[in-house]
Design a protein around this nucleic acid. Sequence first.
DNA 1: TGTACTGTACTAGTTCACATAGTACAGTGT
DNA 2: ACACTGTACTATGTGAACTAGTACAGTACA
Lengths: 136, 136
Amino acid sequence: MARTQALLIQISTGDPRPISRQIVDAIRMKVATADLLPGAQLPSVRGLAQQLTINPNTVAKAYAELTAEGWLESRQGLGLYVATPRQRLNDTERDRRLDEAIQRFVHEVAALDYPPDKALAKLDRELRVLAPKKTA
Amino acid sequence: MARTQALLIQISTGDPRPISRQIVDAIRMKVATADLLPGAQLPSVRGLAQQLTINPNTVAKAYAELTAEGWLESRQGLGLYVATPRQRLNDTERDRRLDEAIQRFVHEVAALDYPPDKALAKLDRELRVLAPKKTA
DNA sequence: TGTACTGTACTAGTTCACATAGTACAGTGT
DNA sequence: ACACTGTACTATGTGAACTAGTACAGTACA
């Protein structure tokens, strides 16, 4: 009955991202790629904290962020579940955020002096992991 | 005789990036887009600091980073100049860094639930600013 | 009803990156 | 000699991120 699975999240201290950010990214990615389906239950705050040997507050913070973004929904006293897809941001805000991400990426390609066309081709390949969700 | 121009860098406190990072990005972008040509002299550490009303150490840090990356070169007692293009990183390191940037971007597209094909098209447009340098 | 789970909300303390402030020193051109 | 350049220190303040501990309300089950 949609029991909580191990979730297999990898936390790395070498990663420059804060731990809570790593959790947010990992879970959001699993939802976006349909690796976690709507209705699936997530590990409890304390359970995941113990599994990753980090502080429960850090997990709670990550979960709170994902809930605020609309990826998860909380049922008081029960747990957290993957929410059913819906519009999570208005279009102008979404476009603004994407523009920022694009600027960051362009900066990094410039910093590496990497051939833009090759960078684009490589990104195209990686971006396909998000496609299945759209075609389904 | 290649005198230091105003440089027109915008520093914003609203920008989440550290000030030194904003400077690095801005100057590197001007070099990558051939807005600043090899041999051009940059504003002095103290001069730019005064122009931006920030601490000279912050400018020095940004310049040091750009020098370490090979974008600028320092002539002791004279000033800093845009370096002539050359290989700045070995290929494996460069690929690794690009992969990281790509992962970040994919994460952000996923976070926004943005149509991957449209994101790619938009990025393609923005990436063209780096092209002129290659065709020249 | 009692117990053991859930999420959530605080406060407090530590660590670390970032920016500022001030000073000092060496190289260059007039 | 003087006025510029970059560079290298130390010290200080601030804020974000994380950890630690505690507390409280909702849910399920015996």
